[in-house]
Each structure stands twice: as C-alpha cells, then as structure tokens.
C-alpha cells in the first residue's frame, strides 16, 4: 500500500514518522513502567534488566534507536519546513540529508549496542 500510493517521498516521510512515533509511544509506556519498577521492586527490575542486556533485547534497542533517530531527524525537517516555508523548495534534499545522517550515525550506533552480546569489541573493550 505504502509503495503503490503515488504520494512520493513526502508521503513515505510522513508514514515512517507516524509508524516510528507510535512505536516510541509504546516503548515509553514500557520504559516508565520498568523504571517505576526499579524503585518499587529493585530485585525484580534487575531480573528484567537481563532481558534488555541479552541479544534479542539489544536488537530491540537498536531498532528503538533507529525509530528514535529517524523520528528526531524527520521531526527537525518538519519544524524547519513549518517555520521557514521557503525551505519547501529543498524538501527532497532535506529528506535525503535525514537519511545520510541516519545511516552515518545509525550503523556504528547499532553495532555498538549489539556488540557486547556477541563478544565483539565495543566501547567497553
């Protein structure tokens, strides 16, 4: 549906922004619950933490980071276009710039998040 609709880059930018936003919303519900748990029941929280530090947990966090990074970059693009309408002429270039930053920051970032679970060299040696 997304690819057949003739909305072009702007429509994809909007769809990804919305999907990432809803995913982030759901994670925030989970995250506030687990931090609340850290205060209410520290022992149980420490057990939950092993899931976050596991390989599936870290893959999930890399995906979370991807959603956050895309939503943040495209959000800046939206704000820029809203407050400086003349930039609309370059909306496509801004959309490509978002993706350049996304991959340049995101690929090393995803590696660093997942590396510890695979015994690969990371920030902690």
């Amino acid at each position: 549906m997304l690819l057949r609709y003739r909305g072009g880059a702007g429509m994809l930018a909007w769809a990804f922004h919305r999907i990432a936003g809803v995913a982030l919303f759901l994670f925030i519900l989970l995250h506030v619950l687990d931090i609340w748990l850290a205060a209410a029941n520290p022992g149980l929280y420490d057990e939950v933490l092993t899931v976050y530090a596991s390989l599936p947990g870290r893959i999930g966090e890399a995906l979370l980071g991807a959603a956050l990074l895309y939503h943040a970059l495209n959000g800046l693009r939206i704000i820029a276009l809203d407050f400086w309408p003349r930039l609309t002429r370059y909306h496509l270039q801004l959309w490509y710039a978002c993706w350049v930053v996304f991959f340049v920051v995101g690929i090393p970032g995803a590696y660093l998040i997942i590396a510890p679970a695979l015994g690969l060299p990371g920030l902690k040696g």
Partner: peptide, 25 residues
C-alpha cells in the same frame, strides 16, 4: 531532540545496559 537523543546516548554509548542495575540508577 536534545533530551531523548542525549538520554539514549548516555544509556547505550556512555554506559551499557548490562551495568544499569537499580542500584546503578
């Protein structure tokens, strides 16, 4: 953009989830 990206960077790149026990928090 500053607070959430900063928070994610601190919890994943400065520190690591493996060491973030309730005591650490």
């Amino acid at each position: 953009f500053v607070l959430a990206l900063g928070h994610f960077s601190i919890t994943h790149f400065v520190s690591d989830p493996a060491e973030q026990t309730s005591e650490w928090i």
